[in-house]
Amino acid sequence: MLIETKNLTKRFGGLAAVNNVDFSMEKGRINAIIGPNGAGKSTFFNLISGFHRPTSGTVLFKGIDITKLPANEIAGLGISRTFQTTSLFDQSTVLDNVIVGHRLRTKSNLVDAILRTKRLKREEAACRDKAMEVLEIVGLTESADRIVSSISQEEKKRTAIALALATEPEIIFLDEPAAGINPDETEGLTELIKKLNRSGLTICLIEHKMHMIMNLADHIMVLNYGEKIAEGTPKEIRRNEAVIKAYLGGSASA
């Protein structure tokens, strides 16, 4: 198992946003988490990526307990993520936004910067190469020098994915990668995710676009009010009584 959560729970005040969730993600698969709005999906991501401390329970990465690690160290281990809002730097180019993504694999410090050492120059070149490499993977080579404020929403999403890829992750968590983009673009993004997966990357995504999930995911977990109500292949999920009830009975936002 690449990632395992055990009894993972997060309470805000008295409310359990994530309640006793056991979930495991196998290496090389595309995992998906679905559920109505406010089901705790984003909180679940935040717990794994170190943004929230769980109230109880553990997160294991390759069998190592990472529950208490800070977010940056979790990234260093090879767990990467994107956010619902891309929060890129608008005034800067696509390339410049992505270059810093490889920073965690470099060692140069302030002294290197001031003295402009060989190590710094070498690492700068490495970061630039890495950035170009991941931009090619996401299909943005042409747009590398464009200012982020001038590119489309879909391109921003791809840039955010490129940034996450630049950290050289083993698993990448995508928080609603297709939110706010049109059906054609969604198709393209689905292809990109498949391609990343084929190259060996494990993927976990949250998404509201059911069609996209069903045709993409190997393994789906359904959350409702913070609790896992179902887990399985798309086929199994589609037939699951609890899921149908949650979606039809609750807010039919999907």
Partner: peptide, 8 residues
Amino acid sequence: DLAQTIGI
């Protein structure tokens, strides 16, 4: 937040 997720 973004800086932290890219390991800074």
